[in-house]
Nucleic acid binder design. Sequence first.
DNA 1: TGAAGCCTATTA
DNA 2: AACTTAATAGGCTTCA
Length: 539
Amino acid sequence: MFYAVAPEGEKGGTLRALARDGSPAGEVEHVDDLVAAVAERERGSAPRWVWASTARLYPRLLRAGVTVGRCHDLELTEALLLAFEGRPGESRSVGAALARLRGLPPPEEEPAEVEGEQQLLFGGEVAPPVEALVEVHAAQLARMEGRLRLLAAAESAGGLIAAEMSHEGLPWRADAHDELLTGLLGPRPAHGLRPRLLQELADRISAAFGHPVNPDSPQQLVKAFAGAGFSVPSTRAYVLKGISHPAVPAVLEYKELSRLHTAHGWNWLDAWAKGGRFRPEYVVGGVVSGRWATRGGGALQIPKVLRRAVVADPGHVLVVADAAQLEPRVLAALAGDAAFTEAAAQGDLYAALAEVFTGTPGGPSARDKAKIAMLSAMYGGGTGEAVQLLSVLKQRFPAAFEYVESAARAGERGELVRSLLGRTCPPASAEYRDLITTEAGRHAAASRGRFTRNFVVQATAAEWALAFMALLRPRLPAGAHLVFFQHDEVIVHTPQAEAEAVTRALHTAAAEAARLLFGDTPVAFPMEAATVSCYADAK
DNA sequence: TGAAGCCTATTA
DNA sequence: AACTTAATAGGCTTCA
């Protein structure tokens, strides 16, 4: 059922079979080649592997060509449990968890990753022994009831998927990227210089002001506009669009191109798109809501214009799929609001909601208003027109409205809120309760209310996405791989002949994820899937 | 000179 | 009309 596995030394390690309740079901086995031992048992009984950290152990297995089906990631699970218990600041490491079990003081800070991955992976001193894994694992099982167990399983599956996606990489054509940059910015400049077209824009900006202005400095820009009689509170694009000074068009264009150059220019290309693949490092559960973060490469902020560089290998295609209007659908399923659930059973949720709103001629349509109202309800907005739209929402969909309202009020009172499966928001700070009696405190309370209001929806949506990917993974045909994930969107790189099978798997997994989380809810979770050679050609 | 924080842009 | 949720990241500015 379970196999605990701890690396030891350069290549070796220890294993121990565990029963369903986590108790030892065999002796400790020492092996000289841990990767080979894992591969052999995976081919045999395909156990659920219990290890300290997928992120540290699994890449080594993947490099050796070994994949596993299921695991229990002790660190990811410990983080979930600590958050659930209202103490997210404590260390998630196996050593710290063991110390807490035994009532001992926390161990010394773990050594930094000085020797790189290798040291952390199989360095016997760093990795906790298998006995520690077994003890912490059994205790974690005892701390979790049904929903948390499902969450831990989903999070652990996420860890496997994240490592596999980094290993596989997103197909990235450096030549297409370079061509795009050269077309927009001019040829690649020498180190430290502006590309030609950026420099020309900078010169035009200085000329328009009649004196040198560095467009990279908001301070200088604000001063320059003030000197020309335009007092602006900031240099944000939407602010500048509202004033009529001859420098504005060049400033806006400069901002756009400069962003591309500094964030995703040639330096990025050199650093991140080696060997025709972009390999971001995904951080599972890196966001408190359970969304993933990435380290380096800004993988979740890739500008849409660069999708042109994401091209399938010869004989392959990309199946690009996103869950349409995921968050409002999640709210519908969570709240069980009868009228709202009925709308969420439709393919276009906002269009279905539009029936209760009235469009403004020349202004937002009824569908636009439905969307604004929904987003305001989930984000805690409510300025201007949204106030009226929210009251319509409250009147027609009282249960859905009450669901997010009560999460907001709980947050304002300083309480914890949880997702469907039990992912838990961080507690309010120690000073929070005293603070909320003051004027600044009311601001803090409103802010925390907006956070918890959004948390319950965003965190449950992240759970749906995690379940979706975990269910999709074993259904993918041979040769097809998940290569990108961005909150509610996935890309599968697959041999062309398997594209239809991949698309079927996507739809099946979406339906299964909905059933796993919400039972037989009538809410639909449609996937919009496109089969393309280039990411830019999807929708 | 380096750290910390501000400003701004990008994504869902 | 204007900025409400969650993030990452680079350049600039301020400060020790």
